[in-house]
Design a protein around this nucleic acid. Sequence first.
DNA 1: CAGGTCGTGGACAACGTTGTCCACAAGGAT
DNA 2: ATCCTTGTGGACAACGTTGTCCACGACCTG
Lengths: 347, 347
Amino acid sequence: MADVTDTSPPSGRRPTLRDVAARAQVSFKTVSRVVNNEPGVSPVLAARVRTAIDELRFEPNAGARSLRRSDGRTASIGLLLEDVANPYAASVQRAVEDEARPRGVMVFSGSLDEDPTRERELVRAFTARRADGLLLMPASADQGYLERELRAGTAIVCIDREARGLAVDSVITTNMAGAAEATRHLAAAGHRRIAYLGDRPGIPTAEQRYQGYRSALEGLGIPVDPALVVQGPHDVASADGTATALLTGPTPPTALFAAQNLITIGAITALRRLGLERRVAVVGFDDFPMADLLAPAVTVVAQDPAAIGRLAAKLLFARIDGVAGTPTTHVVPSTLIRRGSGEIPAA
Amino acid sequence: MADVTDTSPPSGRRPTLRDVAARAQVSFKTVSRVVNNEPGVSPVLAARVRTAIDELRFEPNAGARSLRRSDGRTASIGLLLEDVANPYAASVQRAVEDEARPRGVMVFSGSLDEDPTRERELVRAFTARRADGLLLMPASADQGYLERELRAGTAIVCIDREARGLAVDSVITTNMAGAAEATRHLAAAGHRRIAYLGDRPGIPTAEQRYQGYRSALEGLGIPVDPALVVQGPHDVASADGTATALLTGPTPPTALFAAQNLITIGAITALRRLGLERRVAVVGFDDFPMADLLAPAVTVVAQDPAAIGRLAAKLLFARIDGVAGTPTTHVVPSTLIRRGSGEIPAA
DNA sequence: CAGGTCGTGGACAACGTTGTCCACAAGGAT
DNA sequence: ATCCTTGTGGACAACGTTGTCCACGACCTG
């Protein structure tokens, strides 16, 4: 970028059907037939056309193609995630890609950062490019604005959270059941003072996990202590802060349920600093890398992001292929993985 | 997907320039002028057109647009990574996205899995969609086949590894210097038997890191012991295996230099199992999540994937904007982060 | 008041492709 | 020998947009 001289504009046009036709001495429509494997071209001509295609390294223009085609398909989909750099989202993305690859479908991706405005912008950008379908991890409170896209033929499937105000398929995990299981698991180790550390209530998954926590306590006859419930932290630093405050407060918990992976990491950081990592039990929702190598290793309710991504992609492609039927919410089960931190007994 | 009834085909065409024109009672060319902010439309008409656009929620067809436009731009780029689920790649992707967003450019991404065939397939898929540029983490031994794309006007920048057989900008890290620094750091703690655990030699970064290891040892007058050099493992499991073999062998090392993040994790897993994590020193190349929460915390030579992604994207957009100048390799420095595992002294 | 300029808006072609239709030659059936 | 089918290949329009050009009326100048 330093030495800007701009001598030669990038020349060299890409070959078109006409260039191939000229070289193979046929009409350009014949080339189109060969490219699309349509019948009605003699083997001799087809071979001539094919060598011309190879020699020129002709590649049909996808834009022109989808413009003219009757179905208008672009063989591309949009993937809207909370943050592509988050390991959960990255696993989902990889699974979606693996599902799209054999179909020749390319994946556009973008990060929403829990920003509703950003969700709308990215949807616009993807629909302007006429993506055949959208895989969405909703950031806004209502997806009703997507109704029009749905009617215009864009398939939509939601991931991780159900769509609201829009009838589409969703793929989510067992948030409530998983959170309840985690809570009961801590209670089974003798804990009565189990804290809840979770995302802000506006996020549906956070809401469901909180409900799971509450219902488990109620089922056990343990009252929910508001002083042990923190809803709000979203990243490692803030979770660390609130966990520290909780643990150094007047009536600290003996166990923590951390309702999201970054919050789990923040809580563990706090426990370490306070030297409590072997005395206070922890169960996290969402597995995370290295959880098994920490000391103590971290007990988690693991989601299966690869399965979620795969299933969501399959549902999307089915819709793109014209499969009808009422939209359904599909639930991928979570699994409790005992590693040590969740089995620390109450003092 | 269970109940396939396919009652209503998704109807509802998307509005076009003509639909907007009809509603605003102007010619469709006038609408085009408004959409593209061209001069020559009276404010009254422009306002009428704009309300029609809003009412119909008109969105110009990106495909048709780039087809007709003189520059042929699609406002999209392709990002070809080793594996989108790898944390290093995920950080790069996020940085690229952040750089592309304000320009209104969308990002296609795909995983190569070190497969040269896959590299070619994805390049084809992206160029068929007429991506304006390609950001590539090379998987194949030679990128000469991209010469034609370059001439056809597709900008290309390589990430993590320099392109071979192709004159393009590259953004890489200080592989050799970083590896040498890691090696010297271990030697400074008194180690003489420092093992090298790295990727297979075909990968340029692995090659450079190995050279850094060798040159550091030579500079210190320590002979390179072939029995302490392992080149090959690429994932956690195989690294665990080779590290275990090395550590339980006849003349085990007292320190390990792990030349890649997955290999570092495998080595640490092995040390844990053998109960050696506080006796054998480890320095890894590439930072990884949780490295600071392990016990002992892991000393690493950290790359800066966000900076690499940002710079690569900036270079790519500069090329897309027509900036000429000879292609350059840009080097983003790595940093040694002392956390404990690398400061364990020799027995 | 004639002539030129300017602001405004529309007609038309083109981008590269696919879908529809038709022309032409070869072959079989009547 | 004539008709019809079949196989083969091309002409043409259309997808939704942008670029070029021109027509029209209003305004200013001489």
